[in-house]
């Protein structure tokens, strides 16, 4: 299994739960690294059910949104499922303004998200 610097990955049943290690996801180099680590979950580890838990994340930029969209596409192509939870009110507003809340399956908390798989 790959070593990660931007994310922490654990398993709950069949679901891979991904937590972000950065409170602010905005540094361009860190976002590139984050993208590579997320994509590896699908392309290398072949994971099919992935939950992104944003608990503790205070900020993300549009560049990070781009990585999440590409990640979602890759997972859909591999016939996997992505859900998100623990999103702060500010970041949730970013998803709503950009209408990405219609693209992503966003749940309130970890328990609800896990139950939805």
């Amino acid at each position: 299994m790959a070593t990660h610097r931007r994310i922490d990955v654990s398993k709950t049943g069949d679901v891979s739960v991904v937590k972000f290690l950065d409170r602010k996801i905005l540094d361009e180099a860190a976002i590139q690294e984050l993208g590579s680590e997320l994509f590896g979950l699908v392309e290398i580890d072949n994971r099919k059910a992935i939950l992104l838990d944003f608990d503790g994340v205070e900020f993300l930029s549009s560049a990070a949104l781009g990585k999440l969209i590409t990640f979602d596409r890759k997972l859909k192509t591999a016939k996997g499922r992505l859900k998100m939870c623990g999103i702060s009110p500010g970041i949730l507003e970013v998803f709503q303004v950009t209408k990405l809340n219609k693209v992503f399956d966003i749940r309130t908390d970890l328990a609800e998200a896990l139950a939805a798989f």
Binding site: L65, G66, R73, V94, V97, T98, K99, L100, K102
Partner: peptide, 22 residues
């Protein structure tokens, strides 16, 4: 407009809209 259906899943082009919204 990044919120149009055909552009909704484009990975780029949201910066200006976010500035205007916030």
């Amino acid at each position: 407009d990044c919120t149009l259906a055909e552009r909704l899943e484009s990975p780029n082009g949201r910066g200006v809209m976010l500035m205007r919204s916030f």
